[in-house]
């Protein structure tokens, strides 16, 4: 059968447009995993300790550097380097809590300034370890691309990343909702004093919060390592995204941060695809400002009583 040419053209174009739309959903979903891993740590640390951790993007960067150093430079198996990256970043987080945030407990601004100091220190350390020069690259341990319906393409490396991100977020959710320590953590973030009246040692909980938050950041960095340019300044974009997601989701709300991560990743991906990345970032920041004006508690936050 011979189709009229205008029909063939528009049919072909419709298929192309549909392909692009579905591929964008795939692209956005994969992005959302990183956004969420980075943002939940920021939310946890802010919630429990009242400190905005400006060095959070650098924790992600250290995770990525660990994988680059051990896997790309010294051929350690990728999965082992993920575990080591999580451990390294967790230890950094614990040291930050013990030596900076705890002495600054009653001074959130002091804590913030300390975290900016850590940001610079970690950037310099990364330069010392990795040297200067071009961004580092990690060859992807999982090669190849899964092709669905002959047009949707998901590289196995990204499939692995999203699976691990979802699993880690699921574990975190289980920890927070089904374990006593998780309840204690949420209790401290809601009312530190009332929590101490239940016998909850808030120093210990702060340490657990930053350890969990840092571990998530380390994991995000480790998973991103094979997919992005690794350099000492890569944390910058991470923290901006994490701030947007945290504010849109509702400061202090973990579920809000995860939901906002998914929404923002899809939004950013679609705007980047159909307009461009600069428009996407600017409109993302505008949405953040809008949320601050219209609904300062974010999509999942509650108004603070008292």
């Amino acid at each position: 059968m011979i189709l009229p040419s205008f029909f063939a053209d528009s049919f072909y174009e419709t298929i192309l447009a549909l392909e692009l739309f579905l591929q964008s959903i795939v692209n956005g979903t994969i992005q959302s995993g990183f956004f969420a891993l980075a943002a939940v740590g920021l939310v946890l640390i802010f919630g429990v300790m009242g400190v905005v951790n400006f060095a959070h993007g650098e924790l992600v960067m250290v995770g990525a550097y660990t994988v680059w150093f051990l896997h790309a430079q010294h051929s350690t198996p990728f999965l082992i380097t993920i575990v080591i990256a999580i451990l390294v970043v967790t230890v950094i987080g614990i040291l930050m809590e013990k030596f900076l945030f705890r002495p600054m407990r009653d001074d959130p601004l002091g804590g913030l300034i300390c975290s900016i100091g850590v940001l610079f220190i970690l950037q310099v350390l990364a330069t010392l370890v990795g040297g200067d020069g071009p961004s580092k690259q990690v060859p992807p341990p999982f090669e190849g691309t899964m092709v669905l319906f002959e047009f949707l393409r998901i590289p196995y490396q990204r499939l692995f990343s999203i699976a691990v991100s979802v699993a880690a977020l699921g574990l975190l959710w289980h920890f927070l909702t089904h374990t006593k320590l998780g309840w204690a953590l949420r209790a401290v973030s809601q009312d530190r004093e009332a929590a101490s009246l239940q016998g909850i040692n808030s120093n210990r909980i702060s340490m657990i919060a930053i350890a969990v938050g840092a571990a998530m950041a380390g994991l995000a960095g480790a998973l991103m390592a094979p997919l992005t340019n690794i350099n000492p300044h890569m944390g910058h974009n991470v923290i901006i995204t994490a701030f947007i997601v945290t504010i849109v989701g509702g400061v202090g709300s973990l579920s809000g941060a995860v939901i906002a991560s998914v929404l923002y990743a899809l939004f950013h991906t679609f705007v980047t695809t159909y307009f461009n990345g600069t428009v996407a970032t600017i409109s993302g920041l505008l949405i953040m400002v809008l949320v601050l004006i219209v609904r300062p508690t974010g999509i999942m936050g509650h108004r603070v009583s008292e």
Partner: peptide, 17 residues
């Protein structure tokens, strides 16, 4: 694109379309 791109998947998808 700007200097703040962490993921080129959407850009490449959009151009390849």
């Amino acid at each position: 694109h700007g200097f703040d791109v962490t993921d080129f998947a959407p850009i490449v998808s959009s151009v390849l379309a």
